[in-house]
């Protein structure tokens, strides 16, 4: 309200300043300042993200090339990151092969079957606990369970299982959310037609939840791809040998297809290069590798968004 809108003071009386007027100058100023500060936080985050992306784009400009992606690491020249990039993708697929089915099934239980009782409470508590356990401790758990007690040594499978442990709560929760967002009417209609509960889940709820499930899978994949602390003591840190992709012998310790071989991933490789601090090309290799990791993160994020939106549109239009 502006002062002009106020009724004019009676002649002969001095206008008494309203409460609003007396306090408003200070509080209006504080409000203005707060608004500026809050906008500043938003701008800061964007600026930071922008400068990180620009930083790595510049740092990796002279490094990234097709041969950097496709060559073996080399002691004397820049070399490439092909084997560790391969291992990252291999570990991702191996982990998701285990984590996605178990996570979706667990999500089905939590969304469709779980009643509010002690067992459900225990599952939720377990879910929250694993999410808060430091990744390095999950890695140590994998070390003691698979590497030491099961005598597997450092293997891709041990790493993938430890990664599954770490990411199962996330996958389960995202699957539960996706299933819960399916409207109750869909279930009622299916049950009213005489379908059993499982038929309803299988043929009505799951198909409707697919967009959400796929978003969940991609988000989990993004986290699996960059994880290093879990893998340090389960999948090993050695520089991989030259991989012969025609070797399909799954029991062979040098076959790139075998889950029973050490598998240093891209993130672990960055950590290892940094801690050993050797080689004339260390900085370039790490900058290039970090740029590849960030590019993958962007692809996973945008991919999750795009696929989710596309599928939702297709599902709701049909």
């Amino acid at each position: 309200m502006t002062a002009a809108a106020r009724p004019a003071p009676m002649p002969g009386t001095t206008p008494k300043p309203s409460l609003r007027q007396r306090t408003s100058r200070g509080s209006a100023l504080a409000d203005r300042a707060a608004t500026v500060v809050l906008w500043g936080t938003g701008a800061f985050v964007l600026l930071l993200l922008g400068s990180i992306i620009v930083h790595f784009a510049l740092a990796a400009a002279g490094v990234l090339s097709l041969s950097f992606l496709l060559d073996d690491p080399s002691g004397s020249s820049l070399g490439g990151i092909m084997p560790v990039l391969w291992n990252s993708i291999y570990m991702l697929v191996l982990t998701m092969l285990i984590a996605v089915p178990v996570g979706i099934l667990g999500g089905i239980y939590m969304s469709e079957y779980a009643r509010e009782n002690a067992v459900t409470g225990a599952i939720r508590f377990a879910e929250e606990s694993i999410s808060s356990v430091p990744s390095i401790v999950v890695g140590l758990f994998g070390l003691i369970l698979f590497v030491d007690n099961a005598h597997w040594g450092f293997t891709a499978l041990a790493g993938a299982l430890a990664l599954t442990f770490f990411n199962l709560p996330l996958m389960t929760r995202l699957a539960e959310q996706a299933l819960r967002s399916v409207p109750q009417e869909e279930r009622s209609a299916s049950l009213a037609l005489g379908a059993t509960k499982w038929q309803t889940i299988r043929h009505v709820v799951l198909p409707l939840a697919i967009p959400g499930l796929i978003t969940g899978v991609i988000l989990t994949a993004g986290r699996v791809f960059g994880e290093a602390a879990v893998l340090l003591f389960t999948a090993g840190v050695g520089t991989p040998p030259h991989y012969d992709f025609t070797n399909f012998d799954l029991s062979s310790p040098v076959s790139p297809w075998s889950p029973f071989r050490p598998a240093t991933t891209l993130s672990v490789y960055i950590y290892k290069l940094n801690s050993e601090g050797l080689g004339a090309f260390k900085n370039q290799i790490v900058d290039g590798s970090a740029a590849v990791l960030i590019a993958m993160v962007l692809i996973f994020n945008l991919g999750a968004r795009f696929v989710g939106r596309l599928l939702t549109r297709r599902m709701t239009a049909a």
């Binding site: 985050v45 960059g226 672990v268 960055i270 950590y271 790490v286 900058d287 970090a290 993160v297 994020n301």
Partner: peptide, 18 residues
């Protein structure tokens, strides 16, 4: 800003360290 934050979550620990 929200997608930017999601990208922050995804940036691996070793990249922050580097």
């Amino acid at each position: 800003v929200q997608p930017a934050l999601e990208i922050f979550v995804g940036i691996p620990s070793v990249v922050w360290g580097w």
